Simulated assay, not measured.
Amino acid sequence: MFEKRFRDRINLQQLEGLHRNPPVIEKREGRFVTIKGQKVLSFASNDYLGLGASHQLAAQVGKHFKAFGSSASSSRLVAGNYQTICRAEKTFADYFGYEDALFFSSGYQANLAILSTLFEKGDILIFDKHVHASCVKGITLSGAGLKGYRHNNLKHLEKRLEALNCKNRGVVTESLFSMDGDLLPIKPFGDLKKKHGFYGVVDEAHAFGVLGDKGRGIAKGVTDIALGTFGKALGLFGAFVLLPRGVKEYLMNFASPLIYTTSLPQAHALAAVAALELVEQADNARKIVKDVSESMGETLIREGFQVFGNAHIISVLMGDEKKAAQVSRDLLSLGILAFSARFPTVPLGKAILRLGMTALHREEDIKTFVNALKTVV
């Protein structure tokens, strides 16, 4: 019975153009990966500053794991609350301008923990309809009343706030949206927060490291909580949440996704601080990311493609799911890796090619990609 269900659903995914069958990456060298022995130019990475391919960071990571071992060997609340980790969290809080911070094993786990724990029945959560799947899962598990608002439409958000005029209201959004590539209108969002007094949760996973002064993001001062990940611009793995004073203690006492999992090791905390130091020094890399992103977007628009995104995530509209998947396969045959985002990652009928621009990309890579895309579309 189960086998038939699994087989039938996979067959349906294939018929609808929604089947996932990611290529096997044999190795990575900078902006290139090797697939089936072929060197492929990748636009599918979130390694925005190139730190994930950095030999300097890799040496630091190796040094710390050699010195401190490979595992915390315990959950945070039993025997995994190392001084090294606490100090690293304080370093992150200070750098990004928040009162406290807490490390998690992944961004998904972090969003699940903060949203399912800090909000409960009787509260109201108002969320941008394009927030990450981990946010959706977290707010669903919270038990709070839920209301979505149209993507990045702050007038619609204000209508929601006026209609739901209760005491305990939270708003969940992103600063740089992971698929659309557009930015949260920071000043209008901050104005709404001042006017309506909601509790703000902003996912800055794709902004931290790249946007704002020294990569500090764009939502400081307009949100209570901000989420970041190590696995994108910081070139590592895991996640961190930036918090007001007192919330860390609350999460450590009540957040199941944190309580019932093994802590990240001490070596990771030290490696995270090393990555943060490299981020602080990465002004040149941030300029390269900005320049190549603008060039890619402008070139695609000139060639007649429908393009979204005003930072280092660029979405090229394909529309049909089968078309998007086929274009991605055709690009791969020409030596280019580009991710086709399809339902449910994006709305049905709104499939895209999602491009992650990095400091490793060059102007000639843009020409290569656009010429190849014109060939296969």
Rank of each mutant, 00 (worst) to 15 (best):
E3L: 13
L12V: 11
Q14H: 12
E16Y: 12
E16N: 09
R20F: 11
R20T: 14
N21G: 13
N21Q: 14
P22Q: 03
P22N: 09
P22G: 06
V24K: 13
R28C: 08
R31G: 08
R31K: 15
R31F: 11
F32C: 13
I35W: 03
D47A: 09
G50C: 08
A53E: 10
H55I: 09
H55T: 14
L57I: 02
A59N: 12
G62A: 14
F65N: 00
G69M: 11
V78M: 10
Q83H: 13
K90R: 07
K90N: 07
F96K: 02
G97C: 02
E99T: 01
D100S: 12
A101H: 00
F103T: 00
S105G: 14
S105R: 15
Y108V: 11
Y108M: 11
A110S: 11
N111Q: 12
I114F: 08
T117Y: 02
E120R: 15
I126F: 01
I126N: 01
F127N: 07
K129V: 09
H132L: 12
G138F: 06
T140N: 15
T140K: 14
L141W: 10
L141F: 11
S142Y: 08
S142F: 05
A144E: 00
L146E: 07
K147F: 15
G148D: 14
Y149L: 05
Y149E: 00
R150F: 13
R150Y: 13
K159G: 14
L161D: 03
A163C: 12
L164F: 15
N165T: 10
N168C: 10
V172S: 01
S175Y: 03
F177D: 03
M179A: 15
M179Y: 12
M179F: 14
D180R: 12
I186N: 03
F189V: 10
F189K: 04
G190L: 02
G190I: 02
H196Q: 11
G197E: 09
V201R: 05
D203H: 01
H206E: 14
F208T: 06
G209C: 04
K214N: 09
R216F: 04
I218L: 13
G221V: 03
D224R: 04
A226Y: 02
L227W: 00
L234I: 06
L242R: 01
L243I: 04
V247S: 06
V247P: 08
K248F: 05
K248V: 01
M252P: 00
N253W: 11
N253Q: 15
S256M: 10
P257T: 07
Y260E: 13
L270Q: 11
A272I: 00
V273R: 09
V273C: 04
A274N: 07
E277Q: 09
Q281F: 07
D283T: 14
K287Y: 10
V292E: 06
V292N: 03
G297H: 14
I301H: 05
R302N: 15
G309C: 09
H312D: 05
I313L: 13
M318F: 05
D320S: 06
V327I: 11
S328I: 02
R329Q: 11
L332N: 04
L332E: 02
S333W: 05
L334K: 11
I336A: 04
L337E: 08
F339T: 14
S340W: 01
A341W: 04
R342V: 15
F343M: 06
T345V: 15
V346T: 10
L348E: 14
G349A: 01
R354N: 13
L355A: 01
T358W: 03
A359L: 10
R362G: 12
R362I: 10
V376Q: 00
V377T: 13
